[in-house]
């Protein structure tokens, strides 16, 4: 009967904000998750824009190398990529520091998480943005070229704003993926939400309560971001004719 008590109201006290409650630990975990997700998403978008332009307008070498990058990253499980990149990145940084005569350092978990997930996200963003750029009516880009617009200005004023409405649904999916992928950093022991939950659950033995609570936190995050992205899509589509008008 003892474990039936796990469901009871008594374990809800464990979610209290102040210790001995674990609420603050969970929220700190959530904050770390959001931080990494935002950083990785931003890094991924940067890689994505560069990658999409490289795939569309780059030299044959660039195109082939980018194809290898996107194919490999999308074919291997994120969990394994995280492990490989995490060890490789920490190793490489340490080797470099030691070469300059420094001692071994512990890489900051947030930075490593952002770097690793950013590289993974970059592969997916590249594909999403490439598709979106292709969806921009060719006449718009040709017209801008005919007016003698330089490439940088063309990208900033014509291609990127116009492709946004096509890219946002895919980018929204990627954002939801990256928020959930932060949970994978639990395997390298980083204190994001899932890892914090695991700690709290195994300390207090109230497994069900804590995992359910973390689930609610993730859900709130994803519902809020779905709402924000639908607002963003409406904004990006302003001035476009709606179908059926």
């Amino acid at each position: 009967m003892q474990s039936l008590g796990v469901l009871g109201a008594s374990t809800l006290d464990l979610l209290a904000f102040a210790p001995p409650g674990w609420g603050a630990t969970l929220l700190r975990g959530l904050w770390n998750s959001v931080l990494i997700a935002v950083g990785a998403y931003g890094l991924g978008l940067g890689i994505g824009v560069a990658g999409a332009y490289g795939k569309l307008y780059g030299s044959p070498w660039v195109k082939d190398l980018l194809a290898i990058y996107t194919t490999l990253v999308r074919a291997v499980p994120e969990l394994i990529l995280i492990l490989i990149l995490y060890f490789a990145v920490t190793d490489a940084v340490n080797q470099m520091i030691m070469a300059f005569g420094g001692g071994r350092i512990e890489i900051n978990g947030v930075v490593a998480g952002i770097a690793v997930l950013g590289v993974v996200q970059g592969a997916y963003s590249t594909e999403v943005l490439r598709g979106a750029i292709l969806a921009v009516p060719a006449g718009q880009i040709e017209a801008a070229r005919a007016m003698g617009m330089p490439a940088g200005l063309l990208a900033r004023r014509i291609t990127l704003p116009l492709m946004l409405s096509y890219a946002i649904p895919g980018l929204a999916n990627l954002w939801l993926t990256v928020t959930k992928d932060t949970a994978l950093l639990a395997v390298v022991g980083f204190a994001e939400l899932t890892q914090a939950t695991r700690q709290a659950a195994s300390t207090t033995k109230a497994f069900f309560t804590f995992y359910a609570a973390a689930g609610v936190l993730y859900l709130i995050l994803s519902i809020a971001s779905t709402f924000l992205f639908s607002r963003a899509e409406k904004w990006a589509r302003r001035g476009q004719r709606r179908t059926g008008d």
């Binding site: 474990s3 039936l4 469901l7 992928d181 497994f207 993730y218």
Partner: peptide, 27 residues
């Protein structure tokens, strides 16, 4: 669909195995 798509799979597995699994012996 919203519940499944809105939470990480790792957390779902933990919830099932450790969470729900820990309730079974009480029956």
């Amino acid at each position: 669909c919203g519940l499944i798509r809105g939470t990480p799979l790792l957390l779902q597995l933990f919830l099932l195995y450790y969470g729900v699994g820990s309730l079974f012996p009480g029956i």
